[in-house]
């Protein structure tokens, strides 16, 4: 097996006549945390949404190039995006538990709607998923209560548990801590570290400190272009590009 989980080749993307990303080439290493950083408007969220084919759902959106996941081009016409998305989970900027749904169902729904009905299996996976995100002890007595009743940080961990339940090999995170308080952010960050032990993580952040804390591998985007990428140590200690240096120092962004 290759050391790379996802290989992005010559990808350009945008909406109608707007170009958001220009000719991106990036290899995302297996079971590592890859941080996508850059100032707002650099196209990093669009890049993330290309990896699980969410981008194309926006009216007017287009993508060119190839995204290869485990040797398969996910933009191949024969590929069903729903099957791709089963392998790639996503966590969003704002916690978004499903409305009118219990904590239990929020975690179990992905399995239920994918055909798993056995109550024991479901209970087991719900419990394990909530344990991984450190929510089990906090909510085990309230599993039937609505997911929206939890605090912001708890909701975000619930959303991560929801993604984990269907056992994805890759987890995409779009600024998962940007709407949370510092303590909840720290909890999420240590969770991300833990998840990377047996999963590939791609995390978008505009927070350089967060990227320094988390990333094994870094890609820096600026105005739709991939300016620099490489192992985190190299990019942060010895950036090759002036823009990267400025961003890391906090001069832009």
């Amino acid at each position: 097996m290759s050391d790379y989980k996802i290989i992005v080749e010559n990808v350009s993307a945008g909406y109608n006549s707007n170009i958001v990303l220009r000719n991106i080439n990036l290899k995302i290493p297996q079971r590592k945390i890859t941080a996508i950083m850059g100032p707002s408007g650099s196209g990093k969220s669009t890049f993330l949404r290309i990896l699980n084919r969410l981008h194309e759902l926006t009216p007017g959106a287009w993508v060119k190039g190839r995204v290869i996941l485990d040797g398969i081009d996910i933009y191949d016409r024969k590929v069903n995006p729903t099957l791709i998305r089963k392998k790639i989970g996503m966590v969003f900027q704002k916690p978004n538990p499903f409305p009118m749904m219990s904590i239990y169902d929020n975690v179990a729904i992905g399995l239920k709607l994918n055909g798993i009905k056995d109550k024991k299996t479901l209970d087991e996976i719900v419990r394990r998923s909530l344990e991984i995100v450190g929510l089990w002890d906090e909510v085990k007595g309230d599993l039937h209560r609505p997911g929206t009743m939890l605090s912001g940080g708890q909701q975000q961990r619930l959303c991560i548990a929801r993604a984990l339940a269907v056992n994805p090999e890759v987890i995409l995170m779009d600024e998962p801590t940007s709407s949370l308080d510092p303590i909840s952010s720290m909890t999420i960050e240590s969770l991300v570290k833990k998840l990377a032990e047996d999963r590939t993580i791609v995390i978008v952040t505009h927070n350089v400190q967060q990227a320094i804390r988390l990333a094994d591998y870094v890609a820096f985007f600026y105005l739709g272009e991939l300016i620099e990428h490489g192992p985190a140590v190299e990019v942060f200690t010895n950036p090759k590009h002036e823009l990267t240096l400025k961003f890391v120092k906090g001069a832009i962004g």
Binding site: N52, P99, V166
Partner: peptide, 16 residues
Amino acid sequence: MVPATIREAAFSLGIP
């Protein structure tokens, strides 16, 4: 009124 990210979250669980 149901936010778009609710649908996206469901899609990214592989739900049709």
